Amino acid sequence: MTATIPLAIAHDYVTQRGGAEKVVLALHRAFPDAPLYTTLYEQATTYPEFSDVEIHTSWLNRVGALRRNHRLALPFLPFAAQSVKVPAECTIASSSGWSHGFATAGAKIVYCYSPARWLYQTDTYLGQDRGLRRAALLALRPWMRRWDRAKSKTATTYFAISTVVQERIRDTYGIEAEVLPAPHSVDPEAPKEPVVLDDFVDEGFYLCISRLLPYKNVDKVIDAFRELGKPLVVVGSGPEERRLAEMAPDNVRMVKNISDDQIRWLYSRSRALVSASFEDFGLTPIEAATFGKSAIVLRWGGFLDTILEGETGVYFDQPDRGAIVDAVRAHEAIEWDPERLRAHAETFSEESFARRLREEIQRHTSLDETSPNR
């Protein structure tokens, strides 16, 4: 395979709105001429900015049902991933399990959110799911682990999104990865659009932004706010959506499929962010901090890299109702400094993120600061 373009970006699948997709858009802003290679792309369910990106997909993209629900594609994704050919002198692979397996013509710089959760943290990933999906995954897991570990060896460089992921990469692949925190891309001065919350309060509410998956523990946050009786807005969608909606008390509102303008409105009107998730990075507290808002989060994983205890947020030690209730009450006893919060958020800039990637690209290729992909 002959390299025909200087630089490309790769990502597992572009079918959702989440932190990983925000990183890919940040990569696109840093390298606007680089095309994006992926297994699946569904414009209707991801960020609208992707419509401006040159996107190349795998053969799997022809199946509409899989574009709309990438979890159904799991048994086919290894075959789709290794069928993707990236004809670039250098590829930045944004990966949580698949794009590091794409065939590349030149250097492959992997930006890793985590070794695949469904392979190495199966119980956490599936939660209480005891159906066919669990059975299928357990049957495929031995082969998929061999595939995954073999593909990790094809990388030129590994970056980890956080220290906990750095340790996970070391334990899983035997690779020493440099930690490169993800950038935030929120502009607090950009337009804001109110979110319709019926007769709910329109400011001073707590905010939980999350994909609705078992390991995100949104149910524990809802349980805590049932006891607290304080207003909570949950933003997100996913397999847990119906169950969470059914259990939500009157002081909780659930919304989904909202615009960036509406997300900015929610951040700006909120009291603080709350998350009980087992996060590999923890981008939402940084986004909240750009609006001068503090966070209440689980003392785990990526949050340890993004929260300064007592300055930008408070921790709780277990994802359970009592611990969250105590943390919210402790948070309310602290006088938070919005300017300190904003200054902390600025340390996670797109400029520093892109600068480190450019340095690594130049180490392995002939690309330099005059490159059109700069």
Score class of each variant (00 low, 15 high):
Leu137Gly: 14
Trp147Pro: 03
Ala288Gly: 11
Gln16Thr: 15
Ala248Trp: 08
Ser114Ile: 01
Asn69Leu: 05
Ile92Glu: 06
Ser95Ile: 13
Ser349Arg: 03
Gln43Ala: 15
Leu119Cys: 05
Thr370Phe: 14
Ala65Gly: 04
Ala155Trp: 09
Ile161Leu: 05
Ala80Leu: 06
Leu273Phe: 05
Phe281Gly: 00
Gly236Leu: 13
Phe278Thr: 01
Ser185Leu: 07
Val165Asn: 03
Arg271His: 12
Tyr215Glu: 04
Thr15Lys: 05
Thr38Phe: 12
Gln16Tyr: 12
Tyr267Gly: 07
Val255Cys: 09
His364Arg: 14
Gly204Ile: 03
Tyr13Ala: 02
Leu138Asn: 11
Ser259Val: 11
Leu138Thr: 14
Lys22Ala: 12
Asp280Ala: 06
Ala26Cys: 02
Ala155Asp: 11
Ala190Leu: 07
Thr104Ala: 08
Arg67Lys: 15
Leu244Met: 02
Pro87Cys: 06
Val218Asp: 02
Tyr41Cys: 00
Arg271Ile: 03
Thr104Ile: 05
Trp300His: 15
Leu207Phe: 10
Ile209Glu: 04
Gly282Ser: 04
Ala136Met: 15
Arg133Met: 13
Tyr267Lys: 03
Glu311Phe: 10
Gln128Ile: 10
Thr4His: 05
Thr124Ala: 12
Val23Thr: 13
His331Ile: 00
Asp187Gln: 12
Glu360Pro: 09
Lys293Ala: 04
Leu273Trp: 00
Lys153Phe: 06
His331Tyr: 12
Gln166Thr: 10
Ser185Ile: 07
Pro115Thr: 07
Ala182Met: 08
Pro115Met: 08
Leu77Phe: 00
Glu42Tyr: 11
Phe200Pro: 04
Thr122Asn: 03
Val325Leu: 02
Thr157Met: 09
Glu351Cys: 02
His364Asp: 03
Ile109Tyr: 14
Arg149Met: 11
Leu283Asp: 01
Ser83Lys: 00
Arg264Lys: 15
Ala44Leu: 06
Leu266Glu: 02
Ser237Pro: 00
Leu273Arg: 00
Phe348Met: 02
Leu244Gln: 01
Ala30Leu: 05
Phe225Val: 01
Leu132Gly: 12
Gln166Cys: 02
Val186Pro: 09
Glu42Asp: 09
Pro239Met: 09
Gly236Asn: 10
Ser94Cys: 06
Ile209Ser: 02
Ser94Met: 01
Glu167Val: 01
Ala73Ser: 11
Ile161Asn: 14
Ala276Ile: 12
His56Trp: 10
Asp368Trp: 07
Leu138His: 10
Pro48Asp: 14
